[in-house]
Design a protein around this nucleic acid. Structure first.
Length: 655
RNA sequence: GGGCCCGUAGCUCAGCCAGGAUAGAGCAACGGCCUUCGGAGCCGGAGGUCGGGGGUUCAAAUCCCCCCGGGCCCGCCA
């Protein structure tokens, strides 16, 4: 059996050597030794300084020695000790002991593991798998998926994929927000024009993305006109007129995008007399589950979701479950139930004096000792309105019911939600703790991400202003296509199409994933389709180069090669990086940091491209060296496939 | 006013949670390799008060405090 984490052999040997050498030297400072060792060894700043380093400063202090002196002694002692994976050991700097890996031995281990495990190499499984729900994307069904939800989708899908690769049982959920005024406006408008939507108007979600703002604009305008008529003074009238002007402008622009549709919608809404009242009625009816209302709203949602599915499947994203907010939180009575339990558990934290039902979240957090526990000591958490004066519920309240539903089905729940909802998510977690959920902080996660900003584009779905993910994908694929056309003379038209699709989609996924979620992304077309380093096309190209070598050499993977032929510095570096990869995977999966792996893919691609330039594999005369190199290239192929699998990237086989 | 996040090379970002050696990449600009396993490539030089100031430490981009700048949030919206 091969060791699934080759680098660990080296690491453990470093520890063994250190312990043995310190045992004699530092008997009196055993405690400090243990403390320093449990903190682990360090990775030196440059590869010329070895793979791992032991800083002697703290220990030297405890022993009354100079760090440099101690480092010299240790290095000397270790140099005479028996070892396998550790090569050179040298004192360095002002008090470090640097360990250099014996990469010939590491290569042997790496090759064994790669041959044995194939593309599962590196995907180290947890001892105790958890059932994990990852809820992500969950875009409102009133317009197509946008560039913002795209980041959510890519993060969520990659996390799910990463956790599956780690051995957890993962279920992905899409929360369909089919309750609330926004959706009712869209459903109302959609019901008025659905007889006119056949043919030529494009994807259903894009149609709704137009019908919704049109409906909204018409409602806004008619409401503003009413308010202007009954305005008290000239000042107020002027303000309203200004607002009206703006909406008329928006309506004009929306109409220009499909005059026939707009006019039809306007006519039908006029017949209705009071659209706002009709929408309010639809809202109440829907929450009560009235048949006509359900039919109208579900028709809209189904149409939009069908559009979502098409976009998402292009991105290789699928969901295990589609959770309807209406069903899980309203019709089931779960929200009412949760509110009743809160009433029983914390009547002292509730306030009804203004008509609505308001929860003093801060008081609850204090009473449960959460402020201390969650590090919120000096923070005041705002109050949360659970119910409107008219008795209807609010989004966060319904989310409590949904959270409980998810928690009943999984050990851990990860929710990918924009950072702007951090406060609401905190309020939600306090409410969950109140309702008796144990270990909320580790079981119910808000995976926050910052928004994607597009220079010059102001997003506002109510005004019909958004950048659709479909357009982003088309643009990326189109640009890749141009590049493929330029150099792919050996490829058929069909192959070119397919390559452009795979690489273009990968480019978008990579660009959205590569930046740490807590940082906002400023995004322009140039960057998505920057095909040089640190991009998916660059990585995929590297992979294709490796495949090219293997294809032309008829290589049968075997660990039975002479690794001592791998003497080039780039060969050493490739071996070490690939031997470390399993550790990196674990770090990425357990730390929920997919960007660690995109970074790794880019880095190893850089090294391989340098290697490719400097060393020829196929035409190597020394047969043993040639075989060792081929195995190295094969390992790279496997590692890249493993990494792609972990992140759910598809790699093109040719470019 | 309060809370959260961000501030590292001209630009886009790693590194910060678990403090260590000359702070790393890429893009752009500049100078080479004119293409041999497909150049979507490779090599090179240049570019930095790690937003500012204090503190803790043998050691601070990293931890603590204050300040400055930007984003988001503080609704009977979602």
């Amino acid at each position: 059996m091969a060791n699934p984490v080759p680098f660990r052999l080296f690491e453990e040997e470093c520890f063994r050597l250190l312990r043995a050498s310190l045992g004699e030297l530092a008997e009196e400072a055993r405690e400090v030794v243990e403390r320093t060792l449990t903190r682990g060894l360090e990775v030196p700043p440059s590869k010329e300084m070895g793979e791992l380093a032991f800083p002697c400063f703290e220990l030297a202090r405890a022993m009354g020695k100079r760090p440099k002196e101690l480092a010299d002694e240790l290095a000397l002692k270790i140099a005479s000790m028996d070892r396998k994976y550790v090569g050179r050991v040298e004192p360095a700097g002002s008090g470090y002991v640097n360990f250099y890996a014996n990469h010939f031995e590491l290569a042997r281990e790496l090759f064994k593991a790669v041959v044995e495990l194939g593309p599962d190499y590196g995907l180290v499984k947890v001892d105790r798998p958890l059932k994990i729900i990852v809820e992500h994307t969950s875009g409102n069904p009133v317009h197509p998926l946008t560039i913002g939800t795209a980041r959510n989708a890519v993060i969520g899908d990659s996390l799910a994929s990463l956790l599956r690769a780690r051995g957890h049982v993962v279920e992905t959920h899409f929360y369909v927000n089919d309750v609330g005024l926004q959706v009712m406006i869209a459903a109302y408008g959609y019901s008025k024009v659905r007889d006119r939507l056949g043919g030529g108007r494009g994807k259903p979600d894009h149609v709704v993305g137009l019908v919704y703002p049109m409906t909204n604009a018409i409602v806004e305008i008619s409401e503003l006109r009413k308010r202007i008529e009954s305005a008290q003074d000239d000042e107020a009238r002027r303000e309203l007129m200004k607002e009206l002007d703006e909406w008329v402008g928006i309506a004009y622009e929306l109409r220009s995008r499909d005059p026939e549709l707009f006019d039809h919608l306007l006519d039908r809404m006029k017949e209705d007399g009071d659209p706002r009242a009709a929408i309010s009625k639809l809202n109440r009816d829907y929450e009560e589950g009235a048949r006509e209302a359900v039919k109208a709203v579900r028709e809209l949602c189904s149409a939009v979701i069908e559009g979502f599915r098409q976009t998402l499947s292009r991105m290789r994203i699928e969901f295990d479950e589609w959770d309807w907010e209406s069903e899980l939180t309203v019709w089931s009575g779960a929200t009412e139930e949760a509110i009743e339990r809160i009433r029983d558990l914390a009547p002292w934290a509730l306030d009804t004096s203004q008509g609505a039902l308001v929860l003093d979240v801060d008081a609850v957090a204090s009473a449960l000792g959460l402020k201390e526990k969650w590090g919120l000591a000096n923070k005041e958490i705002p109050k949360l309105t659970l119910k409107r004066a008219d008795g209807t519920t609010l989004y966060t309240t319904r989310d409590i019911a949904y959270a409980l539903w998810k928690l009943r089905r999984a050990d851990k729940v990860i929710n990918v939600i924009g950072a702007e909802q951090s406060m609401a998510q905190l309020q939600l977690r306090v409410a969950l703790a109140l309702l008796g959920v144990k270990d909320v902080e580790s079981r119910y996660l808000h995976y926050a991400y910052e928004l994607v900003k597009l220079p010059g584009a102001k997003m506002s779905s109510r005004r019909g202003r958004y950048v659709a993910l479909d357009d982003l994908l088309n643009e990326a694929v189109g640009r890749v296509k141009l590049e493929v056309e330029k150099r792919g003379w050996r490829l058929s038209e069909e192959e070119k199409e397919e390559i452009a699709e795979v690489v273009g989609v990968g480019a978008v996924r990579y660009a959205l994933l590569n930046v740490t979620a807590s940082k906002p992304i400023t995004f322009d077309w140039e960057q998505v389709v920057n095909f040089e380093r640190n991009s998916f096309p660059f990585i995929n190209y590297t992979y294709v180069r490796a495949l090219g070598i293997l294809r032309k050499s008829d290589f049968e993977p075997t660990a039975d090669v002479d690794t001592t032929k791998l003497v080039h510095e780039y060969e050493r570096e490739l071996v070490i990086q690939m031997a470390k990869y399993p550790k990196l995977f674990v770090e990425a999966a357990d730390g929920l940091r997919p960007e660690v792996l995109t970074g790794f893919l880019n880095q190893i691609s850089e090294v391989f491209n340098s290697y490719y330039e400097k060393v020829n594999v196929i035409r190597e005369k020394d047969e043993e060296a040639r075989r060792a190199r081929l195995m190295l290239v094969y390992s790279l192929k496997i590692v890249m496939e493993s990494c792609a699998k972990a992140l759910n990237f598809k790699l093109a086989q040719r470019m």
